[in-house]
Amino acid sequence: MKSIFRYLGINVLNLFVFLGKMFLFLTEIFYCLLIPPFRFKNLLRQIRFFGNKSMIVVVFTGAFSGMVLALQGFYALNKFGAEALLGPVVALSLIRELGPVLCALMVTGRAGSAITAEIGIMKITEQLDALTVMAVNPMKYVVVPNILAGVITFPLLTAIFDVIGIYGGYLVSVHALGLSEGTYFAQMELYVDMEDIRIGLYKALSFGLLVSWICTFMGYNAGYGARGVSKATTNAVVLSSVVILLWDYMLGAFLL
């Protein structure tokens, strides 16, 4: 009995330590953001890493999400005789929910895990120490460019995802299900508001910050050895995914 409390106590304490470290890390990032020098080249490199190299994944998942949405939406709407609303259903689901969330999950799997591993390895092979010793702040040199790249690329990737998804849905609705092209787009334009797009963008922005924050943090605090890095990577992906879904719900509840 006593040992259960002890066990719980230690875990709760560890949780607090973890949360505290996470937030200190974030404040340090913001602090570094305010003070030059800015690592423009590293930022470009990370944008390429997050953005260009995730595009193929995003295009594929976007296209298929749109197609599946059209197919399933058609099935459901058909029961009410409201097939005409397929366009708005596809577009709204993509723009408000699936675009930001799926895109964030895909990029976490592709790029987030990689930056955790990279930073983790830099830590255990003393590359971060080497930077520190050369009076180059590794937070500025390695972490901040990743955070900025996340915040910049996520909304753009999400927008690409949405558009590709809408055209994927268009392919299925118009060419496979026989909806008229005019109906698909006209209804969509009618029902989608700037508000919806803004919500999607807010989500994507915050996911960008969350994912890059969690992934860099995990790498920066990786344990030693290959095992430490692999554990950090797994944790980063799992935590990012859970936080994405949780935050998506919370934002949805706030913004609605």
Binding site: G51, M55, T153, P155, L156, A159, I160, V163, I197
Partner: peptide, 12 residues
């Protein structure tokens, strides 16, 4: 990349 992203955003 940024160009494509902005086009997509603009389209939306």
């Amino acid at each position: 990349f940024v160009f494509i992203g902005i086009i997509a955003l603009g389209y939306l």
